[in-house]
Structure formats: C-alpha cells, structure tokens
C-alpha cells in the first residue's frame, strides 16, 4: 500500500507539489487527471524518487516503510516501477541490457528487433511508450506509475497499453495512470479517479465523476 502524507516537493527551488495526501490500495487502478503543469508528472517522479524532485516536507510510505529518503534504485528494488512520459535516449545501452525478462513482448507488441536497439533511440511515439511498458512489466512491480502512456500514440498502441494495464492487474499491482484521454479512462475502468491541480489533489471519485468533468479534470 502507498501512503502519501502532506507532501511538498520543489524542482530547482520552485514548489510544484503543495501538500498532497493520498492513499493507494493494493491491486487497485487509479487514473490521474489534471491540467498540464498541475503536478501529475511531479507526483509520480516524487514517488519514484527521481532526485531532481526534491521533497521539502511530508512522507511517502510504501508497504509501511518510510521511503521518503530512499534513492531511486532502492525504491525500484522494493517494487516501484515507472513508465516515463519522455524517457531519455541512452546511446549504446540496449533494451536487452535492461529487460532481463522479454516474456511480455507480445503483451505490448514489441518485436524482437527492439531488443538490440539503443534505449529510446529512433523510436516512434508509440514504440517508446510500448518499450516503457515492457520495462515496467518485466520488473513485475507492486506499484506501477504510468505517465501518459497514451500520449502521441496510434490506435494500435492504445490496445497494447490496455493490455499492459490488464497484465499489471493480474499481477495484483497497484497502478497509477496519468492520462488526458477520457476514452482510455473509460476503457481502463479504474477503481478511482484523482484530479490534480496547482500541486494538490482537488477531486477524487469513481468513474461516475467523468460525467461532470472534462479531460483536464475541470468542471464541464
């Protein structure tokens, strides 16, 4: 279980998370909506432990362990994995160097040729997202943080993204998905929807709240 208590985070001295309290239960899927710049990516990066996202105060607990001061590697080893929205190109390092378990390549439609390519180099939008999901699946995470896995992808890729989320469900992983696509949200059929704005959670609810908000999480 993930528990976040009064979390405040800054990047380069600028506050971007302003007191988030949030609890995610095992095996449940949470969709995170909100305007760009509202703090969605920052929240996921803070949970993953990326050092650029500096925790000023508050706590992150994962399965009753305080991970607030742990590094990204330690968190990954505890079962937290992230599909990055814009992963860096790592020249000379191949997907096969990172993915030790290629058994999920069919789930996300990744051909064998991907494994010998440099990480995130020369991939299309959809290919990048599928490569990210493959890496997350291969870690068999307890908590999967998926940052806009559906942005800039084609219809086929959306099918694979849904496959990946179903696979994570089978693993009983907790999933947090950031998206702007209401159609995808409906297909995922999440356990809960969380709307973030100005670095805070401004709304939570079931799928029924989609009747009242748009893809940015604003009232409509």
């Amino acid at each position: 279980m993930l528990k976040i208590e009064d979390l405040h985070v800054s990047v380069n001295g600028r506050k971007i998370i302003n007191g988030v309290n949030f609890t995610a239960e095992d095996g449940k899927v949470y969709v995170i909506l909100g305007k760009n710049g509202g703090g969605k990516t920052s929240l996921l990066m803070s949970i993953m432990g990326i050092p650029k996202y500096k925790i000023e105060s508050g706590k992150i607990l994962f399965n009753d362990t305080d991970i607030t001061n742990l590094g990204v590697y330690e968190r990954a080893k505890m079962g937290i994995a992230m599909a990055f929205q814009r992963p860096p190109v790592v020249n000379g390092v191949k997907l096969i160097d990172v993915v030790r378990n290629p058994m999920f390549s069919d789930v996300v439609g990744v051909p064998d040729s991907f494994f010998e390519r440099d990480l995130n180099s020369g991939l299309s939008g959809g290919e990048t997202k599928r490569s990210e999901l493959l890496q997350v699946l291969s870690m068999r995470p307890k908590l999967a943080l998926l940052d806009e896995p559906d942005s800039g992808v084609d219809i086929d890729s959306i099918k694979y993204i849904l496959n990946a989320i179903n696979e994570l469900r089978k693993m009983n992983a907790t999933v947090m998905v950031v998206t702007h696509n209401i159609g995808v949200v409906k297909s995922i059929s999440p356990d809960e929807i969380v709307v973030i704005g100005n670095g805070r959670i401004i709304r939570r609810g079931g799928v029924d709240i989609l009747n009242n908000i748009n893809f940015n999480g604003d009232d409509q």
Partner: peptide, 26 residues
C-alpha cells in the same frame, strides 16, 4: 548524464552497474 543514470536505476539497476552500462555504451 544524471537523467540517464536515474532512468537506468529506476529499472532496478544499481548505480555502479548503471555507470558501467553507460561507459560500455559510450
């Protein structure tokens, strides 16, 4: 590159192994 290093570490690769992978890649 710190971003690349953290990215590899987020895959459960230790800092030493991630640096070695990047040097080998270079």
């Amino acid at each position: 590159d710190e971003e690349q290093l953290n990215y590899l570490m987020s895959r459960g690769i230790s800092e030493d192994d991630a640096v070695a992978l990047m040097v080998r890649g270079f």
